[in-house]
């Protein structure tokens, strides 16, 4: 059997619909996850107390369990436990938001803690107010340092979103497998989604590599 582009001709709009679903879910999870990540990050930075311990556990837990397990758990257990009705897509957003919150919290924390001690010493020795220290001295360089990590995580998130096909969210991979099952043109559809993912992710990876290369150069200078 050979690659047959005609197989794609009729059904490619469904793949693009899948792409839009992927992007929409990723977008929502970033928004909700970002809110969660700030709370978790504050919890972990606060250094002691129940909030700290719970934040540390949540971060470790959701960074360590496989994303598929998280997705299945949210999809099949959460509605039962709370007597809710949740569509697959909502479950997917909930699961990925937890995934984002835990990972971004860790990126934020690491970025903030990598602030040069000397900068803090200087700021303190001038008697700079704490809000100014955060706003002008800690956060701007920290966020800039974190940017490659954020983008790198975004590539992970895009890849993880493909797992939502396992609970029937109609994103790209789901569309491809359904179309594959219908037409037996697995080769064409699966290759097409692979190409779409590559086009989506590769530029981000290139940026990460470029940014990190620049960073190491700056350090070794």
């Amino acid at each position: 059997m050979t690659f047959d582009l005609n197989a794609l001709q009729a059904d490619y709009p469904l793949l693009f619909e899948g792409l839009l679903v992927t992007l929409r879910i990723v977008g929502y999870s970033i928004v909700f996850g970002a809110i969660g990540s700030v709370v978790l990050c504050m919890g972990k930075l606060s250094g002691k107390g129940p909030g700290y311990r719970v934040a540390v556990f949540i971060i470790d837990f959701f960074r360590t369990i496989p994303e598929v397990v998280l997705i299945f758990w949210v999809y099949s257990c959460l509605p039962l436990l709370f007597g809710l009705r949740m569509s697959a897509e909502v479950s997917g957003v909930v699961a990925l938001s937890l995934f984002v919150a835990a990972n971004v919290a860790e990126i934020l924390r690491a970025g903030i803690l990598s602030t040069d001690r000397g900068q803090l010493e200087a700021a303190f020795s001038l008697g700079t107010p704490v809000t100014t220290i955060w706003r002008r001295i800690v956060l701007p360089p920290a966020l800039r340092r974190m940017l490659p990590n954020f983008v790198n995580f975004l590539t992970e998130l895009l890849k993880a979103s493909s797992l939502l096909s396992t609970i029937g969210v109609a994103e790209m991979v789901y569309q491809a497998t359904v179309l594959g099952n219908e037409t037996f043109a697995y080769l064409e559809f699966l290759t097409a989604v692979a190409v779409l993912y590559f086009l989506l992710i590769f530029p981000l990876s290139l940026y990460v590599r470029y940014a990190e290369g620049r960073h190491t150069k700056r350090i070794s200078r």
Binding site: D116, G118, Q119, E121, A122, A123, F124, S125, L126, G127, R136, I137, P141
Partner: peptide
């Protein structure tokens, strides 16, 4: 700290 200035070996300017 506002009344006592400090100068460091590594300058510690806000780069």
């Amino acid at each position: 700290r506002r009344r006592v200035g400090m100068v460091f070996q590594n300058f510690n300017l806000f780069n």
